[in-house]
Computed example of a mutant assay.
Amino acid sequence: MALVEVTVVPIGTESSSLSEYVANCQKVLAKETEIEYQLTPMGTIIEGDLDTIFEVVKKLHEVPFQKGAMRVSTSIKIDDRRDKEASMQQKIHSVNNKL
């Protein structure tokens, strides 16, 4: 299972606020049944099959265009661990155990 951090940024909008775009992306994620996700202050973490996540990221990338943006920059960071099971909760638990 992969963990992917995604940040979708519309460029050249009339406002510096991004919360409306973030909310619309979260609505797209809420409809997805094959992934888990968590909103963070700087992006969203998605957990699931990597091919499925790529399809979801493509949908998220389109959201600002659908809302009138003319340019969008999407960044993704992939953590694809294959030596053992990993999840968002497992990673947090592992760090907390060391505190």
Rank of each mutant, 00 (worst) to 15 (best):
K58M: 08
E47K: 06
L39E: 04
S19L: 08
K31S: 10
A86C: 06
N96S: 13
H61G: 09
K58S: 15
M88K: 07
E85S: 13
T44H: 00
T74F: 05
R82D: 13
P64F: 05
F65Q: 02
G68F: 05
L29I: 09
R82K: 15
E85Q: 12
M42V: 10
S73R: 12
A23L: 07
D79G: 02
T74Q: 03
I53C: 04
N97A: 06
S75Q: 10
A86Q: 07
A69K: 00
Y37Q: 08
L18D: 00
E62R: 14
D80N: 15
E34L: 12
V63H: 03
V28Q: 01
V28P: 00
K59F: 10
S19V: 11
K91P: 04
S87L: 03
K58F: 11
D51E: 15
I45N: 03
S16I: 10
S16H: 08
P64K: 06
V63F: 05
L29C: 10
V95R: 14
Q26S: 13
A86W: 07
R71M: 12
G68W: 09
Q89I: 11
D49P: 01
S17H: 13
S17C: 09
L50K: 02
E32G: 00
N97K: 15
F54V: 10
I45F: 13
N24S: 10
A86I: 14
K58L: 13
K27R: 14
A69G: 02
L39I: 12
H93T: 13
V57K: 01
E34F: 07
I78P: 01
S75K: 08
K91Y: 06
V72K: 03
T33H: 14
T40E: 06
Q26W: 06
A30S: 14
I92E: 08
S75P: 01
C25N: 06
